[in-house]
Amino acid sequence: MESIPIEHSLILASILFTLGLIGVLTRRNIVFVLMSLEIMLNASGLAFIVGGARWGQAEGQVMFIVILTLAAAEVAVGLGLIIQMYRQFQTVDINVLSEMKG
């Protein structure tokens, strides 16, 4: 069976990661920022999977599960913070939260 070359999968992961990063940097709605973060996490997860498959190692999948767990925990905390933020400021615009500038 013809396997997908590792370069293709890594390029896909990079594109996903970059998209996520651009989302994080440009989005003003904090919910979208959080979603972009998820994309970045999954991109790195994809990279681990590809690596694991390429070298026939289990650690790649283990790392993916770790990332998945991490993402779940992070989303739980992040969404909690978003709710708090909305209560406090009546908005989800992240630029409003720039009170700590020097």
């Binding site: 990063l21 994080v24 940097l25 939260l97 720039s98 009170e99 700590m100 500038k101 020097g102």
Partner: peptide
């Protein structure tokens, strides 16, 4: 000068980290 970098915008910090 250094205070200038402390904008308070999350995306600025993320950008510098990246």
């Amino acid at each position: 000068l250094i205070v200038q970098t402390q904008t308070g915008y999350l995306r600025w910090y993320a950008l510098t980290v990246a």
